[in-house]
C-alpha cells in the first residue's frame, strides 16, 4: 500500500463527511434565516435538529470508519506501512484505543495537507449546496409558485415562499432585463471603481 492508496481512502471518507456536514450546516443557517424553501423539514426547529445530527453524524462517520474499514491504522508491526502518527502499522481495522489517532496521518504519508482540504472542501460543499436546492425543491414541489413578475433581485429571499426550481427561471429572467443597470450601479461615479466606468465611456466615445 502506498501513500496514494491512503490518500484515496482519505478522499472518499472526507468528501462524504464534508458533504453531509455541509448539508447539515445549510439546514441550520437557512432555518435561522427563515428560508423555508431550502429546508428538508417543515419546522424550523426540527430542521436545526436535523442539521445538527447531520453535522455530528458526518464527523462521527469520518472518525469511526477505521473501526470497520481496513487502512493504515492497525497495530504496530515492523513489516507494515507508514500510517497513523507516522508509525509502521498493519493495514487493518483500528482498535478502540487507537481510534482517535487513526486519522492523524501526515500529508507525505497520504493524509491531507491544508491545501488539499482547501481544494476538496469547496467541492464537497458545492455538491451539498446543489443537493440542498434540488432536494428541498422536490420536497416542497406542491408549494406555491413564485409571482410571475419578480420585481427584485433578492436571491434566496424568494425561497421563503417558493422553491429554487420554481424561482430560478423568473429570477434569471428579471436579471436578463436588469443586468446593465445593476452593473452600472456598482461602477457608478463616486463609488470605488467609478473611474473605470468613466474611462470605458471616454474610450468608447472616441
Amino acid at each position: 500500500m502506498t501513500p496514494q492508496d491512503i490518500g484515496d481512502i482519505f478522499l472518499r471518507d472526507y468528501l462524504v463527511a464534508m458533504y453531509l456536514a455541509t448539508l447539515g450546516v445549510v439546514q441550520i443557517g437557512a432555518s435561522h434565516g427563515g428560508i423555508s424553501g431550502m429546508l428538508f423539514l417543515r419546522s424550523e426547529r426540527a430542521s436545526r435538529v436535523l442539521g445538527s445530527l447531520l453535522m455530528v453524524g458526518a464527523l462521527v462517520f469520518f472518525f469511526t470508519v477505521p473501526l470497520w474499514d481496513d487502512g493504515p491504522w492497525g497495530a504496530e508491526s515492523p513489516n507494515g506501512v507508514t500510517g497513523r502518527e507516522g508509525r509502521t502499522v498493519v493495514w487493518e481495522t483500528s482498535s478502540w484505543d487507537d481510534l482517535t489517532s487513526a486519522r492523524n496521518i501526515n500529508d507525505i504519508d497520504g493524509g491531507f495537507s491544508g491545501g488539499s482540504q482547501g481544494i476538496w472542501f469547496p467541492l464537497a460543499a458545492g455538491l451539498a449546496l446543489i443537493s440542498t436546492y434540488v432536494i428541498s425543491s422536490i420536497i416542497h414541489r406542491s408549494g406555491p409558485r413564485p409571482p410571475s413578475d419578480i420585481t427584485s433581485n433578492s436571491g434566496v429571499e424568494h425561497l421563503k415562499s417558493s422553491t429554487w426550481l420554481k424561482v430560478v427561471r423568473p429570477s434569471l429572467g428579471y436579471w436578463r432585463h436588469r443586468w446593465r443597470s445593476e452593473v452600472a450601479d456598482e461602477f457608478a461615479l463616486g463609488r470605488p471603481w467609478g473611474g473605470v466606468r468613466w474611462l470605458v465611456w471616454k474610450l468608447r466615445s472616441k
Binding site: 441550520i28 435561522h32 434565516g33 428560508i35 469520518f62 472518525f63 489517532s101 492523524n104 491531507f112
Partner: peptide
C-alpha cells in the same frame, strides 16, 4: 487530546461556520 488535535475535526468547523453564515441573515 489526539482527537482534538486532528486536522479533520476543528479546522473543518471553521469552514462550515462560513457556509452557515451565508444563509443566516433574516432579510436581504
Amino acid at each position: 487530546m489526539k482527537m482534538l488535535a486532528s486536522d479533520y475535526l476543528v479546522p473543518p468547523l471553521f469552514a462550515l461556520a462560513i457556509i452557515g453564515v451565508i444563509f443566516i441573515g433574516r432579510n436581504p
